[in-house]
């Protein structure tokens, strides 16, 4: 404890190292990663019920079925906005309790923006497809990836990337990269998954269940890591 100036010969490496250590400590103390993941997991898992009961399915005698995921369209925009609001409030309150400001606002804005993009895309699709036939030729793979990206599960991943950048959180960045790879490249979020006898509702529920569980496990993992750190 001193009020004297550092002598000119003091090691600048040590000063710079102190600066980096303090900055890192503040960032770690501001993090509430598990809360964000828990809120998003809850929204995802609750969303399965809305998709299930809100889906309209019309099957034709030839075995083909038409469906509209109205539940997704009506549930997700307010649910995501609510989730981002809850996350922001939790971040601000926790940081304030610890004696810090919060740096969650850009994440909340990104979350709201991605929600608007998803809603606009799904409304446009809902207006377009009833009066226009679906293309008969096979669509390129990137189209499916884009379709999954603008779905709520993909948009959650995009916003999480922003949170990882804000928190300089390498763990969250790696988790989000894995999550995005899962919902964009592995899980057929936009076409359903499972044996035919399950029915279309269950097939759409499966990928959502997996992505929700991944977010939930992520929340548990980050919460455990935080407890260990403290």
């Amino acid at each position: 404890m001193t009020t004297d100036s550092v002598p000119a010969g003091d090691d600048p490496r040590r000063l710079l190292s102190d600066v980096r250590t303090l900055a890192h400590r503040v960032r770690v103390d501001q993090r509430m990663t598990w809360v964000a993941l828990l809120a998003l997991a809850t929204v995802t898992l609750v969303g399965i019920a809305f998709d299930w009961f809100g889906m309209t399915v019309h099957c034709h005698p030839d075995g083909s079925c038409q469906f509209a995921r109205r539940g997704v369209l009506y549930y997700w925009p307010p649910a995501l906005l609510l989730a981002y609001t809850v996350i922001a409030v939790c971040y601000v309150r926790a940081a304030r309790t610890r004696g810090l400001g919060a740096r969650v606002l850009p994440y909340t804005i990104t979350g709201a923006a991605t929600t608007a993009v998803f809603t606009a895309a799904w409304v446009a699709a809902a207006l377009y497809f009833p009066s226009h036939p679906a293309p008969m030729h096979p669509l390129p793979y990137w189209w499916f990836v884009l379709d999954r990206l603008i779905a709520p599960w993909g948009m959650i991943g995009l916003a999480l990337l922003v949170l990882a950048r804000l928190e300089r959180n390498l763990g969250l960045l790696l988790f989000t990269a894995g999550y995005l790879a899962l919902v964009l490249l592995v899980l057929p979020m936009n076409s359903g998954w499972g044996p035919p006898h399950w029915g279309i509702r269950a097939q759409f529920a499966m990928p959502q269940l997996v992505s929700g569980m991944v977010l939930l496990l992520g929340a548990a993992g980050f919460a455990a890591a935080r407890r260990r750190h403290r």
Partner: peptide
Amino acid sequence: HQRVRLGILTIAHEARRVEFGYL
């Protein structure tokens, strides 16, 4: 260019705002 004051500025910069007790 002083260890403590540099620390205060660093923490305040990262935290946006910081409480006396945390510092």
